[in-house]
Structure formats: structure tokens, C-alpha cells
């Protein structure tokens, strides 16, 4: 299977590794993903996301546009193209990317997500049409993410299983932060300093 190589470093490294492993044989491995026990994934997700200083709102789809308008406020907002049109507030611009020269143009970005995780309060983007390219959720200082309750999974293991095949992913747990000074957590460095999560219940 190995293609003809004209790379001496590659050949040398592989030869060294094979030599190092001489006499030892791999043991077959059986691995079961770990389950995260939770009675209420939606409530746990909301609680844990809030503990990381994301602002969390929970309500029904019908109330979402009003809440969205309130959260966006007066600033200029960019909305991912794939979002349900009824969710897009008047005045918002549909954008799938923000170029570096436009970094200070938009105050907020509104997107959906691929899924969310109760175990850790994490939202995961796979940069599909309702989430835009990576720059959309990176350059504006405020990220507003819509999460449907049926997108919330209990544990990291379930999330990883569901995300197999997604080549581009961004896992987000709260606003950007650092612990680099005396190991004390400080929110707000280079990524968006504000994260709003709107959890949408299905309409009754």
C-alpha cells in the first residue's frame, strides 16, 4: 500500500519506529464510549453554559424573534444564511463570512449550531449553512447561538459519535477566557467576549 517514497526523512522515521517496536505486538482493543448520566439534558446544558458566563435564555420558537431582537440591541448584526427566515430580525444582514477588513463592522453574529452538550455546557459548530464560515463567529465581539432542544445531547461521547465525518468543527464553551495570569480565569480575550445562547423549545 505504501507508495514509492522519495522522502529520506519519512523513510528514516518509519524505519526507526519499526525498529523500536520490534518484538512487541499490538493488543486488540475493545472500547465502549462512556455514558453521561443526566435526568434532564436540556436543563443541565442551560445550567452549565450559564456557569461559564454565557447568557442563557430558554423559550418557545414563537418568542424567539422578539428575544433575538432584544439581545442584538442597536448594533449591526450578521446572520448565517441557513437560519429559518422567520428567525431573522429586521435590519440584520445575511452573511456567511466576515473578512478581516470588516472585523469592526459587525457587533454581533447570529447562528445555529450542529449540537450542544449537557455534560460540559458546550455548543458545537460544524460550519454548515446555518452557522456560516469560521470567521462569522470569530470576529464580531458578540456571538448569539440558537440551540433547539432536540439538538442537545447528554455527553461528550454522544457528541463525538454524531460528529464523525464533520471535517471542520468549532467547540465553544462560554466566551473566550484565559487562566494565564496566576491561573485565575478571566473572561474575554481574543474570541467573542459575549456569548448568548437561546434554547428553543418546540412549539406546542
Amino acid at each position: 500500500m505504501e507508495a514509492e517514497s522519495v522522502n529520506p526523512s519519512r523513510d528514516a522515521i518509519l524505519a526507526r519506529l519499526r525498529e523500536a517496536l520490534e518484538g512487541s505486538s499490538p493488543r486488540p482493543r475493545q472500547d465502549e464510549p462512556g455514558a453521561w448520566p443526566t435526568p434532564d439534558p436540556v436543563a443541565e446544558f442551560a445550567e452549565k453554559a450559564a456557569e461559564y458566563r454565557a447568557r442563557v435564555w430558554r423559550g418557545c420558537q414563537a418568542d424567539a424573534p422578539a428575544r433575538l431582537a432584544e439581545v442584538i440591541g442597536a448594533g449591526r448584526a450578521a446572520v448565517a444564511p441557513g437560519l429559518d427566515t422567520h428567525l431573522i430580525p429586521p435590519g440584520a444582514e445575511v452573511r456567511s463570512r466576515i473578512r478581516p477588513v470588516e472585523a469592526e463592522t459587525y457587533a454581533a453574529a447570529v447562528t445555529g449550531c450542529r449540537l450542544a452538550i449537557a455534560e460540559t455546557g458546550t455548543i458545537v459548530l460544524d460550519h454548515g449553512p446555518d452557522q456560516g464560515t469560521r470567521s462569522l463567529t470569530l470576529l464580531p465581539d458578540h456571538h448569539i447561538c440558537l440551540v433547539r432542544t432536540d439538538q442537545i445531547v447528554a455527553g461528550v461521547a454522544e457528541a463525538v459519535a454524531a460528529l464523525k465525518g464533520a471535517g471542520l468543527q468549532t467547540w465553544i464553551s462560554g466566551p473566550s477566557a484565559t487562566s494565564d495570569i496566576e491561573l485565575i480565569r478571566v473572561e474575554g480575550v481574543h474570541g467573542p467576549r459575549r456569548l448568548d445562547i437561546l434554547i428553543l423549545e418546540p412549539d406546542a
Partner: peptide
């Protein structure tokens, strides 16, 4: 960092 999850993880292929 003793957090449940770090703020950002990027995957690319």
C-alpha cells in the same frame, strides 16, 4: 485548567 471544557477547540481536516 480544571474546567469541564476549555472555551474553544478547533478541528480541521
Amino acid at each position: 485548567t480544571a474546567e469541564r471544557m476549555n472555551p474553544y477547540t478547533s478541528f480541521w481536516t
